[in-house]
């Protein structure tokens, strides 16, 4: 079910990412202040935006899970959060590299944007330990959903912190792209779309994989086999 349309989606994602990075390097002009290190912007910021969006999506799926009791939403939420965590790691590493190139420091502790993103990331690092410390699948799904909703609500605060922050060391992007030359803005928006496509593609891949594994497990149960399939910690 989730594997439907994955091939064209994967192709579109590859083309979009290649196109976005080609635009970033060959179409968008060089930044006069930061030079080539500003090119990190086209991978770092879209990753951060998509990661935060994914965390919120995880919270929304969890709301659907608590409202309907459908465990499928819990699985969707789990995969969304799991993928966002991976992108968040990428955001932190690329951000750190950009900080080193631009500011001469790998990390700046008095910068609200960086610290609040780190807090969001560390918050979500508690998601899996919390989830898998509960053995009962029903309780596990319910507690994980409550966590995902609470943490998901915290994510917009991270965004607001960027808006309200007094320090302007970290560049503002959303809402201030008026300051970007048109060519830079175009490359940036395409990079955001490409990153979102990558996220959706990987989400569908993982959902298809988990769905197939769960179907196999139920077939094996139906056959009366109690030998477990390949062990996995993810929800069913």
């Amino acid at each position: 079910m989730y594997g439907k349309g994955l091939r064209p989606l994967s192709l579109i994602t590859c083309v979009a990412l290649t196109g976005a990075f080609a635009l970033a390097f060959f179409y968008a002009p060089m930044d006069a202040d930061q030079g080539i290190s500003q090119k990190i912007f086209y991978v770092h910021v879209p990753m951060a935006i998509v990661a935060l969006g994914g965390f919120v999506a995880g919270g929304l799926y969890s709301i659907a899970h608590l409202r309907t009791g459908d465990r499928g939403y819990d699985l969707k939420s789990y995969v969304a959060i799991h993928l966002s965590q991976i992108l968040a790691v990428g955001t932190l590493i690329t951000g750190s590299i950009w900080a080193r190139a631009s500011w001469g420091h790998w990390w700046v502790w008095d910068e609200p944007t960086l610290v609040s993103f780190l807090i969001v990331f560390l918050l979500y690092c508690c998601y899996q330990p919390l989830r898998f410390s509960i053995e009962d699948p029903e309780r596990q799904a319910r507690y994980a959903s409550v966590f995902a909703i609470t943490a998901g609500a915290f994510v917009p605060l991270n965004f607001l912190a960027v808006r309200l922050a007094q320090s302007y060391t970290h560049p503002r992007v959303l809402g201030t792209t008026d300051g970007l030359p048109a060519k830079m803005a175009l490359a940036f928006y395409i990079a955001v779309v490409a990153m979102a496509l990558l996220y959706v593609t990987l989400w569908k891949y993982e959902m298809a994989s988990k769905h197939a594994r769960n179907r196999l497990r139920s077939i094996r149960r139906g056959l009366g086999e109690d030998i477990g399939l390949t062990r996995s910690a993810s929800p069913q």
């Binding site: 002009p29 930044d31 030079g35 290190s37 990190i40 991978v43 690329t94 190139a101 030359p181 990558l198």
Partner: peptide, 27 residues
């Protein structure tokens, strides 16, 4: 306001590293 320019300072190694990190994550 970000100003466009044709001058190209160094730091290309950092850019390569950042994109390689992204590639490594995806791969």
């Amino acid at each position: 306001m970000i100003i466009a320019s044709n001058t190209l300072p160094g730091d290309s190694g950092y850019v390569a590293a950042a994109y390689l990190v992204f590639l490594a994550i995806v791969l």
